[in-house]
């Protein structure tokens, strides 16, 4: 995170020294992008936090902490819908593993979590359009299934 801001600062400074007008243009574009994404993002984040608060974590952990087909399917679905940052997701995955979650379940959960975003679809559609966004998510979901199955073959 700090690296990102330092990098941004250095790039901004270099740009400012090279050409003030262009830098101003870049900042104006950044602001415009932020303005167009912010309201949707606000709604998505609120909806996801509401959803996460509604579903009792203990029930979820009970189902996810297995290695059968049901756990696998639930892991794919939860991973697709949830929006959990890596620094929360991986400690959570470690807990699930200790509860008995298999490699396939963990891989399914982690991969869909990172690649499939059902709740962020409105944002994705605003960038790439409905067709591309839906297609990308559907393929990513299929890809996650493949990844998880291959991992079971390799690691179990």
């Amino acid at each position: 995170m700090i690296v990102l801001w330092v990098l941004t600062g250095v790039a901004l400074l270099a740009s400012l020294l090279a050409d003030r007008r262009k830098t101003l243009q870049a900042l104006r574009r950044a602001l415009a992008m932020l303005q167009s994404v912010f309201p949707l993002l606000l709604g998505v984040l609120a909806a996801v936090s509401l959803l996460l608060a509604t579903v009792p974590a203990s029930t979820l952990a009970e189902i996810l902490g297995g290695s059968g087909p049901l756990s696998f399917v639930v892991a794919l679905l939860v991973g697709s819908v949830a929006l959990i940052p890596a620094f929360v997701a991986y400690p959570l995955a470690a807990v699930l593993r200790d509860l008995g979650a298999g490699v396939g379940v963990l891989a399914a959960f982690v991969t869909t979590l990172m690649m499939v975003g059902v709740t962020t679809l409105p944002i994705e559609i605003s960038f790439f359009g409905r067709r591309v966004a839906l297609l990308r998510n559907a393929l990513a979901f299929g890809g996650a299934v493949v990844v998880a199955l291959v991992m079971v073959l390799v690691l179990v």
Binding site: M1, L4, W5, L7, T8, A11, L12, S15, K22, T23, Q25, A26, L27, R28, R29, A30, L31, M33, L34, V37, L41, L45, A46, V48, S49, L50, L52, A53, T54, L83, P85
Partner: peptide, 28 residues
Amino acid sequence: AGAGFGRFLLEMLQILPAMFVLVGLFDV
């Protein structure tokens, strides 16, 4: 839900503004 929303907002604000400035510079 409120606490989760707060964490999400914080995560977003830590990354997105810098990202958008970089994208703006890239564009220009």
